[in-house]
Design a binder for these strands. Structure first.
Lengths: 214, 214
DNA sequence: TACTGTGAACCGCTTCACAGCC
DNA sequence: GGCTGTGAAGCGGTTCACAGTA
């Protein structure tokens, strides 16, 4: 890495670039310019060049970027050129869907543990995993070498789930529960809250409509 | 509304404020200061005051904000003081989980139609809804007065789902499929991509680790 | 007194423009 | 010639500091 601090927005865009580059690769494209990639991602071409410059020089002047090489470089930069073991806490509708969803494994995030505090769910098998009591997280996290936790509990149990995960030594958490959680500084947290997105859509529709009326 | 342009980031934070204010209300708090709310949301107090100032003056100097009033005001500002009819396209694991998830209805987003192009799924009943062929979206959208579409198809079918929705006259789309889609300017799009979030967590863990070693 | 509302300062991300290189 | 890499300019969002008010 070349630069010390990297904007949060850059990381998000890098994830988009990975998505688009993988599609390009499937379609057989081997070279792409920052212009072409920018159009596919809906961003400014300089933006892409700047984002990449935080990590190194991956392009060839006068040519562009070799898709495969760039993909490898970005994945390396993001730390996703390896596999990560992941625990999921909260085996409800959403939790089940994620456990069964192939995308995590395909991208190197392997769901190796499913946890819930409901005695009726404990022992049940979901997507080849036995649901284990949340209290046993600590023991399981070290046994299974888990580094990331996913929270899919109801909001009121999100903080407790987080506490179990942190106590167990997890280094990062993706929280799908619609609740803020507090964690120590050295634990990375990301919120996935689809209500926020649907609110945003509703707001923009309202705005567009009032614009149309004026 | 007082201001013309509102930052995207402000809208996202307003959604967080709604979340936190509803929790406060349940806990019986009737007044909160920008300081208190800021701490609960993990943002700067001035930020909150600025965000609210885009829409009006909702506070009382020397006192703070009345929780119920503020909540009502924000919901009105966001356009979520009403119900919205929503169509879901793609009845896979994730689609089913969302159809069964109570949170949408609780927040005024009513899933009134479920669509899929798989003949084996058409006619099936999920969460009280009959799965209908995606081709019939246009007819159903006007019949059921649907304004928002949710896409939960595999990535390669996301654009087609979007096309059906747009053609049917939907005004906004929430795309859960890991693929960019192109839509006309007057259609609002939001991406919910949990891989981006888990990438971000992985990156931050990697960063923290390399910091620890230095 | 205590807290909001807001103009001004600040900061950081984005975009531009062009030098550097294949 | 064409495209990347990058310093500098531009812009928009965040934070500050304080005036305004219950």
């Amino acid at each position: 890495m070349k630069s010390a601090h990297i904007p949060r927005a850059t990381i998000q865009r890098l994830a988009v670039y990975v998505q688009v580059l993988e599609t390009l690769l499937q379609e057989g494209d081997s070279v792409i310019s920052s212009d072409g990639l920018a159009r596919a991602c809906g961003v400014n071409p300089s933006q892409i060049r700047k984002d990449l410059a935080y990590f190194g020089e991956f392009g060839v002047r006068g040519v562009g970027y070799y898709v495969q090489d760039l993909l490898t470089a970005i994945k390396q930069s993001l730390g996703i050129d390896r596999t990560w073991n992941v625990a999921l806490v909260g085996v409800g509708n959403l939790g089940r869907a994620l456990l069964r969803h192939g995308i995590f494994r395909r991208r190197g995030f392997i769901l190796v543990g499913a946890f819930d505090c409901d005695p009726f769910k404990i022992g049940e098998e979901v997507a080849g995993l036995e649901v284990v009591c949340s209290r046993r997280l600590k023991e399981k996290v070290s046994e299974l070498e888990i580094e990331i936790g996913i929270i899919t509990t109801p909001p009121e149990r999100a903080q407790r789930a987080a506490n179990y995960l942190i106590e167990a030594g997890v280094r990062g958490i993706v929280n799908f529960a619609p609740a803020r959680i507090s964690v120590p500084e050295n634990v990375a947290v990301e919120y996935v809250d689809f209500m926020h997105h649907i609110f945003s859509v509703a707001f923009n529709i309202s705005i567009n409509q009032s614009k149309g009326l004026s």
